[in-house]
Design a protein around this nucleic acid. Sequence first.
RNA 1: UGACCCAUGGUGUAACGGUAGCACUACAGAUUUUGGUUCUGUCUGUUAAGGUUCGAAUCCUUAUGGGUCAACCA
Length: 550
Amino acid sequence: MAEEKSLNFIEEIIDTHLREGVYSSIVTRFPPEPNGYLHIGHASSICLNFGLTKRFPGYTNLRFDDTNPVTEDTEYVESIKEDVRWLGFEWKHERYASDYFDQLYAFALTLIEKGLAYVDDLTAEEIANQKGTPTEPGVNSPYRTRSVEENRDLFIRMKNGEFADGAKTLRAKIDMGHINMLMRDPILYRIKHAHHHRTGDAWCIYPMYDFAHGQSDSIEQITHSICTMEFVPHRELYDWLITQLAIYPSHQYEFARRNINYTVTSKRKLLQLVQDKKVAGWDDPRMPTISGLRRRGYTPESIREFCDRIGVAKRDNLVDVGLLEFCVREHLNRIALRRMVVFDPVKVVLTNYQGEEWLSSENNPEDPTAGQRQIPFSREIYIEREDFMENPPKKYFRLAPGQLVRLKSAYIIRCEEVIKDQQGAISEIRCTYIPESKSGSDTSGISVKGTLHWVSVPHAVKAEVRLYDRLFNVEDPTDESQDFMHYLNPASLEVLPQVMAEPSLLDINPGDRYQFVRKGYFVLDKDSQSSHLVFNKTVGLKDGWTPSKG
RNA sequence: UGACCCAUGGUGUAACGGUAGCACUACAGAUUUUGGUUCUGUCUGUUAAGGUUCGAAUCCUUAUGGGUCAACCA
């Protein structure tokens, strides 16, 4: 029996509701605004909302909160749907706040009839000035006392396009002295003569978030409307509108958004990175977007596991990106096939070896069913320049003059001689191999501490490798002591234009993931062509050794 | 100088008045044809002060610290 995992506070609320019969099943929703790409922070919300209805009876809707036509676009709708599906979730209904524009308009009229909303002629600036501050009450608008008839007439004319953008708004009539600033006659509708990605030019007035979100929840009979903590003060208005309209009582619950160090998760900041060309696009592998992580080689399983491990709570947090990396390593270690690639090659000549042969090597030592592959071996091979030292420290297990080392899945070799060019750089290492040490049939009786990856020179396939590092140099780029752009890591991308790869890598497809032995996990990028392979580094292997520790 | 939210190792998260646990990180050791993986072990924590109670991380009070709120954004 698997150990019972403890519930997070939201699961506990739902568990109680179900046990006490408040609900017999639940409905949740994931409500993105289609004005940007989904990022790792959204993944938490997606896993939470969809995860809830996997654990408990009920279903989850995907609802686009598309009430601001000037920032929204179908490009984002498509990317969001792709990302949610890629993460492994399927929604029950695909809905849009714009589906409800007629209903919302009717709700507004209801409020007007009840004397709970009025048309205001004040400008944005005037409204702001009369709003007061958190410690001082606001003042009433001079238009606050208009009659129901006048309000109805004006609002209909707003809808009919008789007024210019910004000329009028519809406001709830609540209390300009309310301690909660959101209750100080919040704007419900504004005029925007803008083309909407779904409703086209049918409307020139659009509801504000507070007059769309809760009502949409109610229309869909969402039982548990889950959002982040900054919406806590909105809950009072959310409840007020539902009460006044006497519609299905959805309820809002808040959890703390997940922050991750060395990156930013704000659509505005991510958009700025894209627009300022600091990255190659929304799906740049350095971006914390779902599409960026996908291109980086992350698996949906690893992201779900990450979201599961960081949990759900109400306190502020800054999650270590190292945990995300742990999760992807854990998964990739199980599924990624092993391949050998030499990044910074130096030639090794085996002076006592003639001809060539094909050697067998396991595809994945963690998974026997992954089988074996054949690798060509010959008299001249490449090894990593950093795997040789002329004057090694004490516990250096790699190649050094007179030292023995195993070539992975091949033979044990001994370094006999070092050849240098005129500048003194090592141009070639001469070794002898031990014929009876062949991998799988070793009768040499020799044991060595180090094993190196290698690639046969005449069979080597050239490829490009893109090495990624954290996008920012500091844990919290949003600390606001400086603009976050100042913290950009100038070395977040390093391109290796020509690495040497084993030939089995020639026949693979974009999205295929591998472990390059002793290097890390890599994925074939979509920029690849059959004549030019491009690999993205997903994450390195955990590195337990550094020269200083030797 | 208002209201609201929050406070458990370096990080994230449990403990629902009854032994502060798990994971990541770090460190040490074993195994290893990847200095990977795997296995074992070690370090580190209830913001503070009062109160209630046989007993408090948990309930109450105050303080302290952090966050949020004054977009015709969501």
